[in-house]
Amino acid sequence: MTLWLKTRGVLTVMPLALVVFTVLALLLHDSVAVLPSLTLTGGTRMQLAMFVPVVVLVALGRCLDARLPAPEVSGVRHVLWLDAALTVVAVLAAAAVGVALGSVLDSEAALVLGRNTAFLTGILLCGRAVFGTVAVLLPVLWIVTVMLVGFRTWTDPYFWSVLPEPHGEPHAMVLAVTALLCGILVHQFSTRRAL
């Protein structure tokens, strides 16, 4: 498995990404910006922490792209399950950072980092099956969509937006976990057929 870790670049890319993720979460957990909106007059109040998971997603995409397609597909090792494990560990690490910071700093935006990372990871993995590596832009696109049309009022996001929902909102957690599971399954199936 160390060879798989080396191939994916997990030990170099992911720790760096998590450090950057932590620093950004520390800096931005209580920052709010008024950004353009199509549905709200005067713009949307967005927690900047919503953008922070992009760092982990970019790193995860980079790791999953670092593969030897032909030997992996024709081999006997279940590297796709290792990739799934990498995905889950990355999301859990982001969640751990978020919970730790959220508890210490009493920050709701930090507490939901793990949930949001899970949700956006699901979008990334599902998108890769259709669009390939360019799907790394889909999570950013989702955040922009939430910014533009995701709010009914300043404090009331639509249920499907997930990212701005408060901590503990059950449907948001369900959607996030579902998205992540779907993404992992789609990744398994589509990668196997990629050749």
Partner: peptide, 8 residues
């Protein structure tokens, strides 16, 4: 070595 590991 990675290809060898993939092959079992």
């Amino acid at each position: 070595a990675y290809v060898g590991w993939l092959k079992g």
